[in-house]
Write a protein that binds this DNA or RNA. Structure first.
Length: 644
DNA sequence: GCCC
DNA sequence: CAGTACG
DNA sequence: GGGCCGCTACTG
């Protein structure tokens, strides 16, 4: 596991104060347990591949003391960069810059110090509370506060060139500005009122620590969205919040229960049986896929990997087939495969497979066959020579099942055939671009590159109008390590009488001038609403000397009216399966959800569901929380919404 | 494909 | 309108 | 046997 990955897994772990394991009387150390609260670190270990034991231990140390370890460097969020490369006394600037993705040390903001690990250990309790030097007031773990003194950052500066950075060397006053926002204490207490039943209850020494709020702060940071950050795992409390008893919908109540059971799994004697029971319960509880947060599947090995592989292979074959029937098979497979992948134990029988919601008779039989023979004959049966070619063509942006099959039946077999317009096939402008950048478009980019491009675009946007709200969405917001594209949401508060009307057009031409945008795939259409539009194109990251930046990346820019931002955030954060599930649930509850808002009283024509005979009225759209709450879906952070 |  | 793409 | 997201958005 890399350091970044480890940092990411920390986000999901509750903050267990290190002192909780120390016997109660040790007041000598207890004060440390929130020592690093309000600090956001980026840790430079210099380890290219795997995080060493000591790196992990130090990240744990930060995490357990209320600090945040960013998986990816973000100049807007980081408060301290810890440099802990091979030789602790001689930090390596080159390695540091490479890790940060910067060219020179001066690219690091002045208020962010680069410190050696030693600085972290410099904290000392100030017994008489005298406020001299670099003091901090921290919670003492008993509901009170103590004064703690730490060395000035410059005393442990990693690089001579940056001793001035951070506090102490001279009075920059620069990092005072983010002091206020990291103290959502009242909120934390309030949210615990609702959430504590299903959250930790056996940790009386940790009363003031909300692991949730900590994780939220962290991922909120990673994700970079700070529009609305009221965090709670269960029901949210924006606006006048309903008392817990007002949760009238059954799914909601069931949800609370199932979260609880999920948490109990590790402690019971027969985990397998319990899981099956839980699965059954979910089945009859009419649960929607969107109801249960993703409990993080990326950490553990999948005990049924061979089954997953075979089923995925089969699914891909169906994906390349043209019929409507196959489309739904793929939809179904994708859901059942996901369930199997996150199933915690080795599946050993047809019965067991069948008990997993989403796995039906057919798939259970296939699993049985894989268990018994290690093979799946259906794969060979479904395979035909055309599928590889169709799959290849479908990789062209703008080419779907139908066009791919048309081209195949026209006799085309390779991308070059398409380029040559073999047998007179037609290729649209968009497809032409898709063809030209076939490999680029089908290659995911590192998370950091997506961030870099986003930052450049945001800078340009804000220079057009400083009041714009510009955020990165999609897989980046969901915390993925690699991104297939860059999704940017733009809106603007209208309280000063202005709006973002016309901004997208100026932004696009500015980005073209800058050379960031290279190709247009689709242009916005403002016919309905000048505030609402979608742009798609290909871009490259901003140029840096001496490096080629040729790989074109898909970029999507969406503008929405400020009032719709909550619904737009949900839509644009995804993932797709989560969205569909959420919309399905809305529909079943008599609502309708799209990227503009949640609507009630929508009447659909009975024979054609596509036609709404009555528009209904909008009941929520401004915040994600509001929409979740009305739908009885427990609040889930972006990274918990991964369903596929 | 799965589920109602 | 059908086809494709978006989360 | 019928639904499986969206009166989604854009292209041609």
């Amino acid at each position: 596991m890399t350091a970044a990955e480890y940092a990411q897994t920390l986000q999901l772990k509750p903050v267990v104060p290190a002192t909780a394991t120390v016997s109660g009387g040790d007041s000598q150390r207890k004060w440390r347990h929130l020592l690093l609260k309000d600090f956001t670190f980026f840790y430079v270990s210099g380890e290219l591949t795997y995080a060493s034991q000591s790196t992990k231990k130090r990240m744990d140390y930060i995490h357990c003391r209320g600090g945040i370890v960013l998986p990816a460097y973000d100049p807007e969020l980081v408060t301290h960069i810890i440099v802990d490369t091979a030789n602790p006394d001689k930090p390596d600037a080159g390695v540091t810059l490479r890790t940060l993705g910067l060219k020179k040390l001066s690219d690091i903001p002045d208020h962010v110090p680069t410190v050696k690990w030693k600085w972290v250990n410099s904290a000392k309790l100030v017994p008489n509370g005298d406020r001299a030097g670099n003091f901090r007031i921290v919670e003492d773990g008993n509901g009170g506060h103590v004064t703690v003194r730490m060395d000035w950052e410059f005393m442990h500066s990693a690089f001579v060139a940056r001793v001035h950075a951070g506090k102490g060397f001279k009075n920059t006053g620069g990092n005072e500005k983010d002091k206020g926002k990291g103290k959502p204490k009242a909120k934390t207490t309030a949210q615990r009122k609702e959430g504590e039943n299903s959250e930790e209850e056996d940790n009386d020494s940790a009363e003031d620590i909300s692991d949730i709020s900590c994780a939220c702060r962290l991922i909120g940071s990673v994700v970079g969205v700070r529009l609305i950050f009221v965090c709670s795992r269960n029901f949210t409390q924006d606006a006048p919040s309903p008392p817990p008893s007002a949760k009238e919908t059954t799914p909601a109540v069931n949800q609370t229960k199932s979260v609880q059971s999920e948490r109990e799994i590790p402690f019971i004697s027969d985990p397998l049986g319990e899981f099956e029971a839980l699965a059954k319960e979910e089945k009859k509880a009419e649960g929607f896929l969107c109801d249960a947060p993703n409990s993080n599947s990326l950490t553990s090995e999948c005990p049924n990997q061979d089954i997953v592989d075979k089923l995925e292979e089969l699914m891909e074959l169906h994906r390349a087939k043209p019929t409507e029937e196959d489309k739904w098979r793929v939809y179904s497979y994708s859901k059942s495969i996901r369930k199997i992948r996150t199933y915690p134990h080795r599946i050993t029988s047809y019965e067991e497979a069948r008990n997993i919601p989403g796995v039906g008779d057919k798939t259970a039989l296939k699993i049985k066959e894989i268990l018994e023979t290690g093979e799946l004959r259906r794969i060979d049966i479904e395979y035909t020579e055309d599928l590889d070619v169709v799959h290849l063509f479908q990789g062209i942006y703008g080419v779907g099942q139908h066009i791919a099959y048309m081209w195949y039946s026209a006799g085309c077999r390779t991308l070059d055939d398409i380029r040559e317009r073999k047998n007179g096939i037609k290729v649209s402008d968009v497809q032409e671009i898709g063809l030209k950048y076939y490999d680029d478009i089908n290659t995911r980019m590192p998370r950091a590159e997506a961030g870099e491009i986003f930052t450049a675009i945001k800078r340009t946007a804000v220079s057009i109008d400083p009041h714009l709200y510009v955020e990165i969405m999609g897989s980046y917001r969901r915390g993925k390590a690699t991104c297939g594209d860059i999704d940017i949401l733009i809106t603007r508060p209208t309280d000063d009488g202005n709006s973002h009307e016309g901004v997208l057009a100026s932004l696009l031409s500015a980005l073209q001038r800058e050379g960031i945008i290279r190709e247009n795939l689709s242009m916005p259409d403002f016919k309905d609403d000048p505030l609402e539009a979608v742009y798609r194109g290909l871009c490259v990251r901003p140029l840096r000397e001496g490096e080629g930046h040729d790989t074109k990346r898909l970029v999507h820019i969406l503008t929405v009216p400020y009032k719709s931002r909550g619904a737009a955030l949900i839509y644009y954060t995804g993932d797709d399966i989560f969205n569909r599930s959420l919309r399905l649930k809305a529909n079943k509850m008599g609502y309708s959800l799209n990227q503009r808002g949640l609507f009630a009283g929508v009447v659909r024509s009975t024979e054609n569901k596509m036609i709404k005979t009555c528009d209904g009225h909008i009941i929520a759209s401004e915040t994600e929380q509001e929409i979740f709450r009305i739908l009885g879906v427990p609040w889930q952070e972006p990274w918990e919404r991964v369903r596929s």
